[in-house]
Design a protein around this nucleic acid. Structure first.
Length: 573
RNA sequence: GGCGUUAUAGCUCAGUUGGUUAGAGCGAACGACUCAUAAUCGUUAGGUCCCUGGUUCAAGUCCAGGUAACGCCA
């Protein structure tokens, strides 16, 4: 039995994510996790919320709540929505957990001992009114280049020129608007990634089966300009993991916290610790997933993320693990995604543009979204959500091809033979041919799923559904029944067995529909098919079933128009 | 500005290491069927593979130079 450790990029805490975020990491990760479980493999699927940093503090302030309380609430909200989309995390953790505090401090200590941490003095803007240091992008002022009066401290959005906060004329805090700013000298820790450049380079070079999107981004960062640069890992903030060297104080770093990018990926590991604690397991139970010296050497680790997260996962986080000198499990496969656009523009959290996860579930059940998003996953390039495409795809694939198949075979059986699987003659040449064809297709489907080719898997699955309709159309049991009821009974029996097969194969994409079909066929346990002729004989004469309700109602033109209008602007709050 | 990704049918996309007549789904037209959610199945029509030049017996595929869209620039 293979063992799969699967992580999805962890969503930031400051609000509900949109469908673009979902399809870029959590949803394909869930597809893979469900598939591997269905194949009988051992899976640990982890995700968490990314809670530290200035945006969380500001969002909490806006909500009028202490940041810890705000994060706890938002974590609960995101967890509930994840359940709504049937994301089957074994644990949905928090980067603010006790485990992550300890582990982040541990890594920093190890890196310091290895000589991979340097101290750098830098100048940063302090706002007296806000009583905090301001990140560059939270300083506004007039651009010295073009005169635009809302230029940010890192870049002017108007003329795109890169800036330093000190370049701005009449600089002010973007938070309070205060101009009472002061440039202060402050000391920060840097991770000396550059010292590990050759090691990282060789590691990336060895990953020949990764998506080109993944390796090209990593190589660019490794070789562009001066090569891999060192990165600051500390900030002058209150909300975060206090800077400590393992369990000891770090002189000169009092009152500082680790920078969010440093502690967030470590949460992948800490999350396993949280999982163990939740299930009353001990350290050995999660070590066997994460420590190659403690049982994780046979684990295959796959990460899922959007392309914006690739540099951290290919370079910074591996640098942390390698630099620790400890035998942590490194990622084996990194599946990255491009962006999903919305009706001619980007989805945007900050601008409230597009469809957000909670809104999607108010409109339609999870399976609809799962199917469309996965079958249109932005694998090779950015892809676009349009309501027309969504409506067409969902109606045709789910309602007409799959839903209608289940409906026509169960209703036909009920009207001719009652709600029991009929017996009839044994399978003949037409049935053997179908079984042979399906065997090939299911093999192909499994190959695509193993390779995480999401779109191709969806395509192959749909082709398998079509086989069912093709078969019924060609043998026409409604005609056969008039002259040869025994043969019609056999054809109907195979049809019902096909519904069972489709339910099992579709479960990773459509967990709810799969459960519904299995329920109506009164099948207790879904077992992945190995031998198709055996599998398609499981429902035998006399097995009772019920005709299920409509599996997928169609999206009407009226709904489509209404939703299109409703989501044309930006979200209110 | 630097770098990256993308460009194939009306739409969404496949096209391994260069090798006959460039594929699929949707949409369209026509036909078949009437069990089913007016669902299904079949047939047909649609392409200057972004442009220019090059390498080669042979280029959608490789090379060079353009053009356009999108993204990243810590």
């Amino acid at each position: 039995m293979a063992r799969h450790l699967i992580t999805s990029a962890i969503p930031y805490i400051n609000g509900i994510k949109h469908l673009g975020n979902l399809v870029g990491s959590q949803l394909p990760a869930d597809l893979f996790a469900r598939y591997q479980r269905a194949r009988g493999n051992e899976v640990l699927f982890l995700c968490a919320t990314d809670e530290h940093g200035t945006p969380a503090e500001l969002a909490a302030a806006k909500a009028g709540k202490p940041v810890a309380e705000y994060c706890a609430e938002m974590h609960a909200v995101q967890a509930e929505i994840a359940r709504g989309f049937r994301l089957s995390f074994d644990h949905f953790g928090r980067s603010s957990s006790r485990q992550n505090h300890a582990l982040t401090q541990h890594f920093a200590g190890r890196l310091a001992e290895a000589g991979l941490i340097s101290e750098v003095s830098e100048k940063q803007v302090y706002s007296h009114a806000d009583a905090r240091f301001l990140p560059d992008r939270y300083i506004e002022g007039t651009c010295p280049n073009c005169g635009y009066d809302k230029a940010r401290g890192d870049q002017c959005e108007n003329c795109t020129k890169q800036l330093d906060p000190t370049d701005l004329i009449d600089a002010r805090s973007a938070i309070s608007g205060s101009t009472d700013l002061e440039v202060r000298e402050t000391k920060h820790l840097y991770l000396r990634q550059s010292a590990l450049k050759d090691e990282l380079d060789a590691w990336i070079e060895s990953k020949t089966d990764w998506p080109v999107l993944t390796t090209s981004i990593a190589k660019k960062w490794l070789h562009d300009g001066d090569g891999l640069r060192d990165r600051g890992i500390t900030r002058d903030l209150d909300w975060g993991i206090p800077v400590r060297k393992g369990t000891e104080d770090w002189p000169g770093m009092e009152g500082k916290v680790f920078y969010v990018w440093f502690d967030a990926p470590i949460e992948y590991i800490a999350c396993a610790g949280e999982w163990a604690e939740t299930h009353e397991l001990d350290d050995t139970d999660w070590h066997r997933w994460w420590r190659t010296d403690k049982g994780a050497d046979d684990v295959r680790y796959t990460q899922f993320m959007g392309k914006d997260n690739v540099p951290f996962h290919t370079l910074s986080f591996p640098a942390t693990l390698i630099g620790s000198g400890e035998p942590w499990k490194m990622v084996d496969h990194l599946k990255s995604f491009n962006y999903l656009n919305y009706d001619g523009g980007q989805f945007s959290t900050s601008q409230g543009r597009g469809i957000f996860m909670d809104q999607a579930l108010e409109l339609l059940p999870a399976d609809y979204w799962r199917w469309w998003l996965l079958s249109h996953a932005p694998e090779s390039s950015d892809s676009e959500f349009t309501w027309e495409n969504f409506q067409g795809s969902v109606n045709k694939d789910l309602a007409d091809v799959l839903g209608n198949f289940v409906s026509r075979i169960t209703k036909f059986c009920r009207s001719k033979f009652g709600e029991f699987v009929p017996g009839g003659s044994p399978y003949g040449p037409a049935e053997d041919a179908l079984i042979a064809d399906l065997s090939v297709r299911i093999e192909r489907y499994a190959t695509q799923m193993d390779a995480m080719e999401v779109r191709k898997s969806a395509q192959e699955l749909r082709a398998i559904w079509v086989c069912g309709n093709e078969y019924l159309q060609s043998v026409a049991p409604w005609t056969t029944y008039k002259t040869d009821p025994d043969t019609a009974a056999m054809q109907t029996r195979l049809g019902l067995n096909l519904a069972h097969l489709f339910a099992v194969l579709s479960a990773p994409f459509l967990p709810d529909a799969s459960t519904k079909i299995l329920g109506s066929l009164k099948i207790k346990e879904a077992i992945w098919p190995k031998d198709q002729s055996v599998f398609l004989s499981q429902l035998a004469k006399g097995h009772a079933f019920e005709v299920p309700d409509v599996l997928f109602a169609k999206v009407t033109d009226e709904q489509c128009d209404e939703w299109k209008a409703r989501f044309s602007g930006v979200r209110e709050n």
